[in-house]
Design a protein around this nucleic acid. Structure first.
Lengths: 111, 111
DNA sequence: CTGGATCCCGAGGGATACTG
DNA sequence: CAGTATCCCTCGGGATCCAG
């Protein structure tokens, strides 16, 4: 089978896998998306507990990027103390197959 | 080869997504696997051409890790000049759903 | 042709303190 | 509670040369 090859503005070959990795690659984003998709809405500190080892800096950075890409929804309640909730968006749900496939593979291969 | 894995208090992997990312995360591995799965067997320099921007160091490193994890097969022909071919393994084929899902998402979202 | 070995730099990310 | 700001440093990865 021959796949459709995409070319960027520099004339370099680009494939859809690379596009996906650019959006949700890295160490944290897919894990974050998996949790908010499966477990539902989560608050900031709940996310921290779900991601052992992540720092403030990385968590807020990743969450911000995911929100700017429209993959998660950030809801802020103007209360004291502050309360912010993160949930999966419609667009984020389009990653369902990717996440399920990766989860299935990890479960099978990793035991 | 595989970096530090996060485990919970029972010594089990935190989540399967993380296991998968530990095996095939990073910038190159899934793209490499995609190419050898879809396009078939590839030689070293063919791989370089398929991955604009990758360096010798990174390509040989990633190929070695993928081979050690049993996801690709390295076949060396004792000729002059040297000839080495990389192909997808049975185990590598188990990532088919992951790769297809990511390719589909990138195609839809990226245009 | 297919890599390995080395040197080296800078950005990515950790730790911590601070703020609304 | 939910982040920001800052400092600091490691180490991922680029460039280059070497080897079978």
């Amino acid at each position: 089978m021959t796949e459709k090859v995409q070319v960027d503005e520099n004339g370099k070959l680009k494939c859809s896998i690379e596009y996906t990795l650019n959006k949700v690659g890295g160490k944290w984003k897919l894990v974050i998306l998996w949790h908010v998709m499966v477990d539902g809405t989560k608050r900031y500190n709940e996310m921290r507990r779900l991601l052992p080892g992540i720092t403030h800096k990385m968590l807020s950075q990743q969450l911000k990027e995911l929100e700017q890409d429209g993959l998660i929804i950030r809801t802020q309640y103007n209360e004291m103390p502050p309360k912010v909730e993160y949930s999966i968006s419609e667009k984020g749900l389009t990653l369902k197959h990717v996440l399920e496939a990766m989860h299935a593979w990890g479960t099978e291969q990793g035991g």
